[in-house]
Amino acid sequence: MSGQREIRGRLPHRYPVLLVDRVTHVDPGRALTALKAVTCNEPWYADLGPDTPEEGFGYPKPLLVESWCQSAGVLATWEAPNPDVLTGQVMLFGGMTEVEFHRTVLPGDVLEHRVRVERRVDDTVMFEGESLVDGETVMTVGRIVMAFRPAEVLRPEAS
C-alpha cells in the first residue's frame, strides 16, 4: 500500500484537484489499483442549497475521469517520478475514447480505480480499466491516452 507521500511525489496536482487518496496495488509498468474517497467537503458541493435533489450531489463525471487518470499517472510515473510541471518530461492528457458512466457516485462512496496499461508507443501510453464502488462498476474506461513531452510545450509562449 502507498499513501500520500508516494502519490504527491509523482503527481503535480494539489488541492482541490488531487483526486487520488491511496494506492492499494501496483504492478509496475502494467497495472495499478487506487482509492479515492468522495466527500461533501469538496468545493464542488459548497454552493448547493436545500432544494438540491439527491442526484444533484452526484460526483461530477469529468472529475471521476480526472481521478481515474491521476491513478493512471501514478502508474505511468511509478518508476520515474517527476512531480514538477516546469521541468523535465511532463505528462499530458491526450484524449479518451468510450468512457461510460453506469451509476451516480455520491459523497461517502469510495472509488476503486483499476488501471491497466493497454499499449505503450514511444512516449505515449494508452490505458484502460474501470472504477468500482462497493464492487459495483460505476465507470468503464475504453482508452485514455497520456503523452510524455518536454515541459516547455506547456508554456503559453510555446503554443
Binding site: H13, Y15, P16, P43, P60, P62, V85
Partner: peptide, 21 residues
Amino acid sequence: ETVLPGHYPGFPIFPGVCLVE
C-alpha cells in the same frame, strides 16, 4: 476558477476534464 490553485501550483493550466465539463 476553483480548480486552478491545484492544477498546478504556480503554473495554472485549465484541465482537459474541465473542458469536458
